[in-house]
Design a protein around this nucleic acid. Structure first.
Lengths: 298, 298
DNA sequence: CACAGACGATACATAAAAAATATTGTGGAC
DNA sequence: GTCCACAATATTTTTTATGTATCGTCTGTG
């Protein structure tokens, strides 16, 4: 039976004792504690009573500590430090200065702002663990609902996801990539429809679902279904195939500096500058909220 | 400027939070804390306010912890443990269950109860460090006054030492030691006066001052000044010399089983059974007080 | 869909504890 | 011996913690 044994001291009392022990002077200690001397004397007396131990050697001109007082001073200091740690730990966690952010992203996000955003966040939030995991949009929505992921970088539209908050993240504007030795590359104004009969290099449907579908959708809007000549995973892989003339493709504009000697990049005239990658989350933890804020404002 | 930053929590509040976090139920937690539910709800709310952090996830049927709540639970538990350590450390020290006892003793004390007393005290007080140091009575009195020694086993009388408390410790009754082949050993009733003209084996004045003087004093009472034939430090050394016929001596009765084949021990008829070894101390620390109590009552 | 029950929040009252002010002892220094 | 510095008391005031009564809300159930 654990009985009624409450702790007979408070942190305040410990603070008071430490002050007296350090100053060796009730008046100065009281001043430091922003209080007057009498209640301090009282508090120390009650502390000694509660402990059943004399802590302070009075009587002489200058007051000293008993052996019990000395050990209690040490332990009380440690207790106060630990209490401070408890407070800052909770505050840091609540403010998002510490914690974990499990971030999912679709593969194509790697060719936009995401790498910079991650680097920046890690630099400004060294005590937040940022876990990265590549996943399709659908998988991320499920993970967000299960609570196994905090934030996702994914490609709208999101079906049946009214409960998930969204923030614009990256305008992943696309362009056409045409081999330099291809007839189309000489023509001034190429449209997507011009590529209806060209062989396409695309991401595999299973591994690069989001990006694959995005391209298919664009083609559908242009009135055709692209003929997939070859699949390749990763923008550089796709473009390397374009460079050797294996076909044409549609890639993010941010790739347009890659193999400029062998590939000509042409804007997609019809595509508006809308946002194609969003940050999504549900019940954001403070750290996750910080990530979204940090990612959104850059 | 350290400003006015007091700790915004008390140990009591931490106790309350831990109870709620563990029970996941305000009513049960309140019961465990021997209080009613409303003030508990209030206390938790004020805690969250003070920390600027939500700790407990309400709303759902069963309440859970936020990330901040989880870390605060850990840290609060540790704080409570540490506070408990502070209390018991002070109490143990004040009760003499821990601490240090610096014990001085005159060399001759080793031939009486002291070894047993030390063994017993060490067994019953494992967390008290007992430091032993051999020293003359005068040196011990000085050390007691300086505060470099806590308790002493020494030989009265003590000059100018009214401030030092004394407890009888050991009746170090003395007897004469005479070689078996000495003429005196045949006589039935030998008195100390009979040994006035015999060569004495004694402890050196410098190293064995207390015991040396005690014997000199006895001889003076018997009306003579002993002729010191040889000095030897330690009872066994003295008696070995007696055994080979180098002289006579006066030793504690507890030695009378040593070399019984060569030495005959005779009681000192005049010496009353007074206490010749006392425990002395000044401003006894709790641990020292325990030692004196333990040593005195055996 | 209404209803009961469980549970946490709120409002108000009361008791306990902490702190402030004024004053009194007390021991050491000149 | 007198003064001074400092801690201890005494008493009042304020703050804080706790208790009682009650309400609102969500959940599972008939």
């Amino acid at each position: 039976m654990p009985a009624d044994e409450r702790l007979p001291v408070s942190l305040r009392t410990m603070e008071q004792f430490v002050a007296v022990a350090e100053e060796r002077h009730f008046h100065r200690a009281a001043e430091r504690l922003n209080m007057s001397q009498p209640p301090l004397t009282n508090a120390i007396r009650k502390l000694e009573e509660a402990l059943g131990a004399t802590l302070i050697q009075r009587g002489n001109r200058v007051l000293g500590l008993t052996a019990a007082g000395a050990v209690f001073l040490d332990e009380a200091r440690e207790t106060l430090r630990q209490a401070g740690r408890a407070v800052t730990a909770a505050r840091d966690m609540a403010a998002g200065r510490t914690g974990v952010v499990r971030l999912g992203y679709v593969g194509s996000a790697l060719y936009g702002r995401l790498p910079d955003v991650v680097r920046e966040f890690r630099a400004t939030h060294p005590k937040v663990r940022l876990e990265l995991r590549e996943a399709t949009t659908a998988a991320q929505v499920a993970a967000l609902r299960e609570g196994t992921q905090d934030v996702g970088v994914l490609i709208p539209p999101l079906a049946n996801a009214e409960d998930i908050g969204r923030t614009p993240f990256d305008s992943d504007r696309l362009c056409m990539a045409i081999p330099n030795d291809h007839p189309l590359s000489g023509r001034p104004d190429v449209t997507l429809a011009d590529m209806a009969d060209e062989p396409f290099i695309l991401w595999p449907l299973v591994e690069g679902r989001g990006f694959h579908l995005q391209v298919i959708r664009l083609c559908a809007d242009a009135g055709f279904v692209p003929e997939v000549a070859q699949e390749a995973y990763g923008m550089h892989a796709v473009l390397s195939l374009v460079a050797v003339g294996a076909g044409v493709s549609v890639v993010p504009e941010s790739m347009s500096s890659f193999r400029g000697d062998r590939i000509s990049y042409r804007p997609l005239p019809g595509s508006a500058p809308g946002f194609d990658l969003v940050l999504a989350g549900r019940d954001l933890s403070p750290a996750a909220r910080r990530f979204v804020r940090s990612a959104g404002q850059a």
